[in-house]
Design a protein around this nucleic acid. Structure first.
Lengths: 122, 122
DNA sequence: TGAGCCAACTAGGTTAACTATGTTGGCTAC
DNA sequence: GTAGCCAACATAGTTAACCTAGTTGGCTCA
């Protein structure tokens, strides 16, 4: 399953699993196969599989529970790894502000343009 | 150097190096100390250091050259792992555009509602 | 039936060893 | 001076082994 494409085996596995997660084959909350099973499926060592899963964990796509397994995270509740979360939060705040202001403007326009005919054809 | 904070050693090292890179201590183009040196500095095994560096490599913060070393990447030229960087930049631009346009509309409204006293005291 | 024990299974971290590949500097020969 | 060789150094990937910690299910006993 791990091909000689020059791309490291652990990255290929991570790519494959990520594609499954992104593509919906592995839905949020779904447990991934165990490390042992993945090693068998991908014909790789446990260590390589662990590395691959570690990559996805750092990306926030999966979360592991000792003794239980590794589960696909819910994208709506994933803070997003790294500082991106902070940037996204910032953008959300700005968008929220714009939304409020725009609603206000729309309201003003709705009440102020009604009596003025000729201004409604924008 | 790797503390018993419950956070994995390799993650601590990655955090530390990331902070140095983000903080400017390690400028773009700068070579990181070698794996052997980092292992000594952080009192960890080669493998742990490699994992830490691997994390940073996946984040696009560093790039390695065999036989030479690992170098800090230039943030302006780093695509940022995945599409998140590009998407955030794009969203910023859109938000900025909306901000300007909304401010303009708000200004127009302010001037067109001036003759109507009682409506400006929002 | 419920509680306790334990084996099997699981994730995650750490370590050492090995391999492949590339870089660099010193040394030698021409 | 230049080219070639090689040891030392370096990155990156792979593997196996070990350890800690947690989960689960089956079995035994009260």
């Amino acid at each position: 399953m791990v091909k000689n494409t020059g791309r490291a085996g652990y990255l290929q596995i991570a790519d494959d699993l990520r594609a499954q997660i992104r593509g919906g084959s592995l839905a949020p909350g779904t447990p991934l196969p165990s490390t042992a099973q993945l090693a068998e499926q991908y014909d790789a060592s446990l260590s390589v599989v662990k590395m691959a899963v570690g990559i996805l964990r750092n990306e926030g796509l999966v979360i592991g529970q000792q003794g239980k397994g590794v589960f696909v995270t819910d994208p709506d509740q994933t803070p997003a790894a790294g500082d991106t979360g902070g940037e996204v939060a910032e953008l959300r705040a700005v968008v929220q502000d714009l939304s409020v202001r725009l609603a206000r403007v729309e309201e003003q326009l709705a009440t102020s343009t009604t009596p003025r005919s000729g201004r409604s054809s924008r």
